[in-house]
Nucleic acid binder design. Structure first.
Lengths: 241, 241
DNA sequence: CGGGCGGTTGATCGAGTTCAATGACCGTGG
DNA sequence: CCACGGTCATTGAACTCGATCAACCGCCCG
């Protein structure tokens, strides 16, 4: 029981500057503490929720790392995102009262469970919380637009460069290095997310390494030349203007 | 003045079964009527809002047809969606109080302006409206996941087939034909949305026509064999299982 | 120490892009 | 009413990037 429902407080959480509590005053945060039913542990490889599951709650990642993916009728699937501490999972479930994607832990993880009916109730009382919920959903929409841009109009090198910069930037916001990281996902998962095959991901990593832009050793990646990476992202055509 | 701010009522709108009012009782709908500041006309080719514009309102498409698109630093842009009557525009603006994409009218259009602060206020009073706003945002997130799936893991034929079926289905929900349509966008815009070049779009149209699946004449499209189109979408590999 | 999963690298292939020319449609003005 | 210009669409031919097929490596864990 203790393992699967641990009472915690947003007000004392070290993610409060990144997670739901952002911008709430102490009184509002206390209400939020009452909302959070419990935490839930998810083992590496296990699903927090799967496509088709009934929707009841949103989840705030407390520790660990997730991927979300959608699946077609014929079995192919597409990774739609990777989520780390402080990020919110489950927004897809609201429309149809069931989840349309699956969330799988890529390493042992822990999430805070936010029963959605209670969150709505509390949002009606506190306009700051209400607006914050709206912002979180809008942020997800904007993020998705960015992924569409990436998938629809970037070449392999640009996609991987954008992916690495995005990842390291989010890790940095959580206190990790600005230039080093250990990837939590396989080449195949990166490929699925970026719309390319695992071999292409691997080759592109190698090319970046040969060019002295990054250092790669399996899951470990170090960015040596962030500017070069940035230049790759927003400079498609190989002309020199 | 009259041309640009026309008072209207959701309660008497013929889109009330598709738009914001869905599921609201008469009292709630009356409140909604007070919310809607006015309508706004947008000429073909003009922007309802552009990336970077201050966010103040959501917009419900009353008539006409829009595209939304995002632009990279280096000038490429990606069409992220097409919107028709009853659909909501502007959700991307909430996070940063400014729009991150542009909405361009593909034909003369009219929208209902929904000031977002007032919508939030009203949502706090009426939980049905609140939940409905959440559903609209979640629906957009799920739609975006579908586009990612399309862009990340489908081939040209599948993308176009999925696109045509989606479009005709939405038109049918609005009382139009189940099999015929006139496209409001160019081949280039379709290509941008689907992550392919206009020539490929055109060639794929021609191939579908040669196969007797559709009839195409410029912007006019008639679906002759919807099942074949459906089979193309969720049956990637050309093996016969 | 051996088995297996994940990753790298090479060789070949092909879907879709690119470049280019032609054709259809539409509004405008002579 | 028709000629003209412009935009949008179609089609062909050559090319290219990334996919596919295949072999091998290396790291981790039992």
């Amino acid at each position: 029981m203790d393992l699967h429902s641990i009472k915690v407080a947003c007000s004392s959480c070290n993610l409060r500057e990144l997670c739901i509590p952002v911008g709430l005053n102490p009184g509002e945060m206390e209400q939020l503490d009452n909302l959070i039913a419990n935490r839930r542990r998810v083992r590496r490889g296990a699903a927090l929720f799967a496509a088709g599951d009934a929707f009841t709650s949103l989840y705030a990642v407390r520790s660990g790392f997730f991927k979300t993916s959608v699946t077609t009728a014929d079995g192919r699937d597409q990774v739609t995102g990777f989520q780390m501490a402080g990020e919110i999972l489950g927004l897809d479930g609201i429309v149809q009262d069931k989840h349309s994607c699956s969330a799988i832990a890529l390493e042992d993880a822990e999430v805070c469970v936010l029963p959605f009916d209670k969150l709505e109730q509390l949002s009606r009382e506190f306009s700051a919380l209400q607006h914050h919920v709206h912002r979180i959903m809008s942020r997800e929409i904007v993020r998705d637009q960015g992924v569409m841009l990436l998938l629809g109009s970037m070449r392999a090198e640009e996609r991987l460069a954008a992916f690495l910069l995005n990842l390291v930037q989010r890790l940095h916001a959580r206190g990790f290095s600005k230039s080093e990281m250990v990837l939590r996902m396989t080449r195949e998962e990166i490929g699925s997310y970026l719309g390319m095959k695992l071999e292409t991901v691997s080759r592109t990593f190698s090319r970046f390494q040969d060019d002295g832009i990054i250092e790669v050793k399996q899951r470990y990646v170090r960015i040596l030349d962030p500017d070069a990476l940035g230049a790759i992202v927003n400079h498609a055509s190989p002309d020199g203007d």
